[in-house]
């Protein structure tokens, strides 16, 4: 009898853990697929279908180290644009990126897409994180 209760409890915990995990996964997928559409309409013309950029004019989005180092600044870059010269994949880019007219949740979606495409794998960048980061833009 005791054994049966433990088994039921264990399987219950197991199901809960599983459903939590898949909910997280579903949230990630929701961000990712919305981000993909936003990327196409707001970013792809310049950064390219595969995040390859354009020669020495437009930086690629394939530098995982850059994205990781600047993760907390990315939302500000998307919202306000970027003027300073930056170093991506060891190459300097001096142009400027125009600001994008995106809501915080859309910024979170597109950042999730970019940080998990083109060889990047940085996981979910959710809207709460984006809101905090936007509050600290320089």
């Amino acid at each position: 009898m005791k054994f049966k209760i433990i088994a039921v409890l264990l399987s219950f915990i197991g199901i809960m853990a599983y459903s939590c995990q898949s909910e997280e996964k579903i949230e990630f997928m929701r961000y990712y697929s919305s981000g993909q559409e936003l990327y196409k309409s707001h970013c792809q013309n310049c950064h390219g279908q595969n995040g390859e950029g354009l020669a020495a004019l437009i930086p690629p989005l394939t530098d995982a180290a850059y994205l990781k180092q600047n993760r907390s600044q990315l939302a500000c870059y998307v919202k306000n644009g970027l003027k300073l010269p930056i170093l991506v994949n060891g190459k300097a880019y001096n142009g400027q990126m125009p600001p994008a007219t995106l809501a915080p949740v859309e910024i979170a979606q597109v950042l999730t897409y970019v940080q998990n495409s083109f060889g990047n794998k940085a996981g979910l960048h959710n809207v709460d994180q984006v809101n905090t980061e936007l509050g600290k833009c320089e």
Binding site: Q44, N45, C46, G48, L54, A55, L57, I58, P98
Partner: peptide, 13 residues
Amino acid sequence: CPSICPIMHRNML
């Protein structure tokens, strides 16, 4: 030009 020029010159390349 931030809109279509980069994609045009990516193709022209």
